[in-house]
């Protein structure tokens, strides 16, 4: 019905967050110069943005295909047909589930990159000690 609106809303928030964090990181980078290169958090947040925006866009297309999204007001056939309650329930189950699972998988990607970066730090400190 309109489940893609939940991850799309999350994408708006994370995109704004990415912009703010990126500008802060630019200021920090000019002050600190780390010897071991690390992926910036704003770049990692970019992974989540791409999954959320890409997924929402393709899902929105599917909703247009099935006639659930229309080009005239109120844009959603569920609202036009008086099924707003059902639509909100679907957004609460499928929509929230989509946003949560994408974010959880991104969390897994963050954890994996953290482990790899720490390994890189260990190797470079061992090399420096020799």
């Amino acid at each position: 019905m309109a489940c893609f609106l939940v991850p799309a809303s999350e994408a708006v928030i994370t995109t704004v967050a990415e912009k703010i964090i990126r500008s802060k990181e630019k200021n920090d980078d000019s002050n600190n110069a780390s010897s071991v290169p690390k992926v910036r958090f704003s770049d990692k947040l970019g992974w989540l943005n791409k999954m959320l925006w890409g997924g929402s866009a393709l899902l929105a297309f599917e909703h247009i295909w099935h006639g659930e999204v229309i080009p005239v007001f109120p844009f959603l056939t569920a609202v036009q047909n008086g099924e707003t309650g059902e639509m909100l329930a679907e957004m609460g189950t499928a929509g929230v589930g989509m946003a949560v699972l994408v974010t959880l998988i991104w969390g897994g990607m963050l954890a994996a990159s953290h482990v790899i970066e720490n390994r890189k730090v260990d190797i470079s400190s061992e090399e420096a000690g020799q």
Partner: peptide, 12 residues
């Protein structure tokens, strides 16, 4: 990442 995002959403 776009295709993975869509795949996760359709999986749900």
């Amino acid at each position: 990442l776009m295709f993975w995002g869509a795949s996760i959403m359709w999986f749900v």
